[in-house]
């Protein structure tokens, strides 16, 4: 089986001589569940953004689901994100004033589905993350853990190949964080490749594979 994510000698430098990534090599097989760990400023978020095609590397090759990212236009990268990649962020990025279904359905807007179908899948995704009884709730009516579950539902509603989560439990208490991690494990068990950045060693320790980072390198 060919890897779903492949980084080869990837570097990312910012003006002013900041080297966020220094020659990173990483290969992820379909169906893996990976914890990315490391001290603050070690380049975890930068690597996840490069994998998620939100950022292009300065040098090196990035292959996602077989596509060489360097060869793709911005439009093609957008299409790649819409169809293959789901993101979960530390701050949930939910639209205030819109209910859970609307927030999740919005995530399917760029997959080209009609509204009815978007909402149907949104409801299914919310049921899947255990929020079947919170469909009409707006973000301010939800707990932090529930909000992050809505964000996870939005990320997986389009059935992505890869789910990228940047400190999804960073804003949550231990119990809620545990719930979100359990959810990611379930999604992984159903076939999605999952990469999670976490500062929590207990959480990281329970995941099958860990990618430790330091000074912009995988060590």
């Amino acid at each position: 089986m060919s890897p779903v994510i492949e980084l080869a000698e990837v570097t990312k430098s910012y003006p002013g001589g900041v080297h966020a990534l220094r020659s990173v090599d990483l290969s992820v097989e379909p169906g893996e569940l990976i914890a990315i760990v490391g001290p603050s400023g070690s380049g975890k978020s930068t690597m996840l953004n490069v994998i998620g095609t939100l950022d292009r590397p300065t040098t090196g090759t990035v292959r996602i689901d077989g596509h060489d990212v360097a060869r793709l236009s911005d439009r093609q990268l957008s299409a790649l994100r819409a169809s293959r990649i789901g993101f979960v962020f530390q701050s949930f990025h939910l639209a205030p004033g819109r209910d859970a279904v609307a927030n999740v359905a919005d995530g399917l807007l760029y997959a080209g589905l009609p509204k009815r179908e978007r909402e149907r899948r949104a409801r299914a995704a919310l049921v899947r993350v255990g929020l079947g009884d919170r469909l009409g709730h707006r973000p301010h009516q939800l707990s932090g853990g529930e909000r992050q579950r809505v964000a996870v539902a939005r990320a997986v509603a389009g059935d992505p190949t890869v789910l990228l989560a940047d400190e999804p439990t960073g804003n949550l208490d231990t119990a809620s964080g545990q719930g979100v991690m359990d959810l990611l494990r379930e999604l992984n068990a159903a076939g999605t490749t999952v990469l999670v950045i976490t500062h929590d060693h207990d959480i990281a320790g329970t995941l099958p594979r860990q990618v430790p980072m330091r000074d912009g390198q995988v060590v």
């Binding site: 911005d74 957008s78 819409a82 701050s91 760029y110």
Partner: peptide, 16 residues
């Protein structure tokens, strides 16, 4: 801006 970033991560093109 953060809504724009989110939409881009969800697959919105610049044109969209």
């Amino acid at each position: 801006r953060s809504e724009i970033g989110l939409r881009r991560s969800l697959g919105a093109t610049r044109g969209q």
